[in-house]
C-alpha cells in the first residue's frame, strides 16, 4: 500500500433517494492508531460518513478507501469492526455466545472462539457475566458486551456510531476511560461519531467538526494532549478552550442559518 492512511476519503458526495444532500465534498484521512471524532448536530452527515466507511451506504460520487480497499469489500471488512448506537445483541444468546458471534460467522471452531470471547469479556470487565442473557444487563453493561464483540476479531479499525449516546453521564464517562485504555492496549484506529463535544475533546486526537444542510466539514481541530488522559484533563484550560472552539464553530454555523432565515422572512 502506497498510502500512509488507513482510511482516506476524497471529495465524497452522498445524496439520498429523497434528494437530501447528506455529504458535500467531504475529505478525511486517518493515520494508523489515530483516534478521530466526527462531531456535529443531527443531519450533519457524521453517521452517514461512518456508514460509508463501513460499506453500509454507497457513495454518490467521490472516493473512499479502507486499508486501500473499497469500503464493504471483504478485505476492508476483515480489518474492521463497527459499534452501533444500540448494543445490537441477540437476546436469545448468552453474553459469551454474543461476543463469539463474529468468529462464529467466520467459521472459527467453537473452542477457539469461546476462549477468545472469555478473553475479551475479561478485557471489558464482564468475565463474571459470561453466562448472563442481555435482558438481565444494564445499558452500560450491554454496551460493554457490544464493544467486546467488536474487539474479538482484533480489528485494526473500530468505527463507532454514537455508542454511548443512550447512557447516563456517569456511565458514559466511565466507558470513555475504558475505551481509551482499550485503545491504548490494542493500538486500534478509532473513528468515533458523537454529538457530544465534551466527549469528542476528551477522547480524540483529532476532532472533525461537521455542519448540516448539506453535511460539510467545517473545521478540523488537533487535541495536543498525550494519553493517558484523566479527569484532570477535563479541568484543564486546553480542554475548556477546545470545547469552546467546537461550540463556536457549531454556533456560528447555526447563527448564520438563523440570520439567513430571518432575511428571507423579511
Amino acid at each position: 500500500m502506497g498510502s500512509p492512511f488507513v482510511i482516506s476519503a476524497k471529495d465524497v458526495y452522498k445524496r439520498f433517494p429523497d434528494g437530501t444532500l447528506a455529504l458535500e465534498g467531504v475529505a478525511l484521512a486517518v493515520q494508523p492508531g489515530e483516534f478521530v471524532s466526527l462531531v456535529g448536530p443531527s443531519g450533519c452527515g457524521k453517521s452517514t460518513l461512518l456508514r460509508i466507511l463501513a460499506g453500509l451506504e454507497d457513495i454518490t460520487s467521490g472516493e473512499a478507501k479502507v486499508e486501500g480497499y473499497a469500503p464493504g469489500s471483504p478485505q476492508a471488512r476483515q480489518e474492521m469492526a463497527f459499534v452501533f448506537q444500540e448494543p445490537t445483541l441477540l437476546p436469545w444468546r448468552s453474553v459469551l455466545h454474543n461476543v463469539a458471534l463474529p468468529l462464529e460467522l467466520r467459521g472459527v471452531s467453537s473452542a477457539q472462539r469461546l476462549d477468545r470471547a472469555r478473553e475479551v469479556l475479561d478485557l471489558v470487565g464482564l468475565g463474571a457475566r459470561a453466562g448472563a442473557f442481555p435482558g438481565a444487563l444494564s445499558g452500560g453493561m450491554k454496551m460493554r458486551v457490544s464493544i467486546a464483540r467488536a474487539l474479538i476479531t482484533r480489528p485494526k479499525i473500530m468505527l463507532m456510531d454514537e455508542p454511548f449516546g443512550a447512557l447516563d453521564e456517569m456511565t458514559r464517562q466511565r466507558l470513555n476511560d475504558e475505551l481509551l485504555s482499550l485503545k491504548q492496549a490494542t493500538g486500534s484506529t478509532v473513528v468515533f461519531v458523537t454529538h457530544n463535544m465534551f466527549e469528542a475533546v476528551y477522547l480524540s486526537q483529532r476532532i472533525v467538526v461537521m455542519t448540516p444542510h448539506p453535511g460539510r466539514i467545517a473545521e478540523v481541530l488537533e487535541v495536543p494532549v498525550a494519553y493517558p488522559r484523566t479527569s484532570e484533563f477535563r479541568a484543564s484550560e486546553t480542554y475548556g478552550k477546545l470545547v469552546y472552539r467546537v461550540l463556536n464553530v457549531l454556533e456560528g454555523d447555526a447563527a448564520k442559518r438563523v440570520s439567513v432565515h430571518s432575511e428571507v422572512k423579511a
Binding site: 460499506g55 463497527f82 448506537q85 444500540e86 445490537t88 458471534l101 463474529p102 467466520r106
Partner: peptide, 12 residues
C-alpha cells in the same frame, strides 16, 4: 432488527 441484519452483513 435492521441493525442486527447489518451486523451480520458486516461480518460477511
Amino acid at each position: 432488527d435492521a441493525s442486527l441484519k447489518q451486523l451480520f452483513q458486516l461480518y460477511g
